[in-house]
Amino acid sequence: MNHQIIIESETEGAEEYAALLQRVIPAVLEAEGVAFDCEVDVLLTDDAGIHAINLQQRGVDRPTDVLSFPMFELAPGTPPALEDVEADPGSGLVPLGDMVLSLERAKAQGEEYGHGARRETAYLAVHSVLHLLGYDHLDEGEQKRRMRAREETILGALGIPRETAEG
């Protein structure tokens, strides 16, 4: 597949994380059976940046680690079909949606959880792409367990398991 991952940054030192996301995001799409070329837009920011977006887009007055804005309503765990989505006529790519990730929060959480900023950033990217593909975890029950299991399976296949302690 020829997925296009467009990464913009509002924060310094984002280059190494951008390279990581260029590897992680297509791996999630492949693991979930996305069989068409698509585009995912990513904004790497800090807590202030994600706070402003969270307030503007969701009415939530606080920073968070990652935000996902899917373009389509898809069924989790079911590979999307071309009939379920619409390609951009100019590029021919299906715009799956947007991701906003706070590198500041990823670094803090990576330290807090003891597995480092790179692993946390990879985890947040996997989490966000799964949201773009219809997964949710609002029920704190079966949906959340299913999403967490997919996250760990995908990260394991990428060689980024939970116990990784990289910076």
Rank of each mutant, 00 (worst) to 15 (best):
N2E: 10
I6T: 08
I6P: 00
I7M: 06
E8F: 06
E8T: 10
E8A: 11
S9M: 00
S9I: 05
E12S: 14
G13R: 11
G13T: 07
Y17T: 12
A18L: 00
A19Q: 14
L20T: 02
L20I: 01
L21G: 03
L21H: 03
L21R: 05
Q22A: 10
R23I: 02
R23Q: 04
V24M: 13
I25K: 06
A27L: 01
A27E: 00
V28I: 08
L29Y: 04
G33W: 06
G33M: 02
V34K: 04
D37N: 14
C38A: 15
C38M: 04
E39F: 08
V42D: 06
L43Q: 04
L43G: 07
L44H: 07
D46A: 05
D47H: 05
A48L: 14
A48Q: 15
H51R: 05
N54T: 02
N54Q: 01
L55Q: 11
Q57D: 15
G59D: 00
V60A: 02
V60M: 04
D61W: 06
P63S: 08
T64W: 00
D65S: 15
D65L: 11
V66H: 10
V66T: 14
V66Q: 15
L67N: 01
L67F: 00
F69W: 05
F72G: 04
L74M: 09
L74G: 10
L74T: 08
L74Y: 05
A81M: 11
D84S: 02
D88N: 15
G90V: 10
G92F: 09
L93V: 07
V94A: 07
V94T: 13
P95N: 04
L96K: 13
G97N: 00
G97E: 01
G97S: 01
D98H: 10
L101F: 02
L103Q: 10
L103Y: 07
L103V: 09
L103P: 11
E104N: 06
E104V: 08
R105S: 15
Q109K: 15
E111Q: 15
E111A: 13
E111M: 06
E112S: 09
E112I: 01
Y113L: 12
G116A: 10
G116V: 08
R118N: 08
R119S: 11
E120F: 11
E120I: 03
E120L: 13
T121G: 07
Y123A: 14
Y123N: 15
V126G: 14
H127Y: 12
H127Q: 07
S128G: 15
V129K: 02
H131V: 04
G134C: 02
D136R: 14
L138A: 11
L138I: 06
D139C: 02
D139R: 06
E140A: 11
G141R: 08
G141N: 07
G141T: 11
E142S: 05
Q143L: 12
R145K: 12
R145C: 07
R146Y: 01
A149V: 04
R150N: 00
E151K: 09
E152I: 10
E152K: 13
I154N: 13
L155V: 12
A157Q: 15
A157K: 13
L158N: 07
I160E: 09
P161R: 10
P161E: 05
E163F: 13
G167H: 13
